[in-house]
Design a binder for these strands. Sequence first.
DNA 1: GCATTCCATAAGCGATGGCTTATTGATGGA
DNA 2: TCCATCAATAAGCCATCGCTTATGGAATGC
Lengths: 109, 109
Amino acid sequence: MQTAAQVDDRVFTALADPSRRAIFESLTRGEAAVKELTARFAISQPAVSQHLATLRAAGLVHGRREGRSVYYRVAPGGLRPLVDWITQYRAFWTDSLERLERLLEKMDP
Amino acid sequence: MQTAAQVDDRVFTALADPSRRAIFESLTRGEAAVKELTARFAISQPAVSQHLATLRAAGLVHGRREGRSVYYRVAPGGLRPLVDWITQYRAFWTDSLERLERLLEKMDP
DNA sequence: GCATTCCATAAGCGATGGCTTATTGATGGA
DNA sequence: TCCATCAATAAGCCATCGCTTATGGAATGC
């Protein structure tokens, strides 16, 4: 089985690297093939593939093969573990979002 | 000056390590001195101090000296960069919180 | 079939990270 | 003053990481 802590670990670790975060952010603006991603960043194609493998293992992106290309996109819900983690400590980032959440809990408990 | 990306980097990196995350989570349950933290985890006192230094540099905790002890606590707003980062991509963690937020944006734009 | 394109994996290298023990620094009590 | 306690820093060690080049493997076009 797979504990929540292990999932958190993979997600946090995957996003800790700046290149990987950049790739992820790039994918949030739309699906892209490995070749396109390689063109966007100043690293080699294998480096990009390795980062994508890490992001995929963390459940943050999906890959879809189409002919010779593999198109990657952000996995819906992939950030969920991070959101859940952070929500646990919402008392420590007091801001509007938190107030909204409380308000809605009252409205629709 | 200090760019947002650099802040994100420090926060993500700080939270990527399981020991550091455990220490942070421990502090969310209340202030604690280094000695107490050392007792809670199976690592040496210097290791704990090093982790705390990293967390402090990321703005996630504060240290307060009191006599020979140094009491650490979670820094309010320290998770803010993480929340902001995630909020950018809220379209990708579709859930109730997101719906609530949209609803409120409509109510109070 | 054969060459080409796109991607993944292998292997290796230098840098970084997290841990340890040893030491220093600061505070407080006898 | 002297010693004990608590924390931070220094130095070194080993594992891991991110990158590279080289290679393998699948799909396409000729």
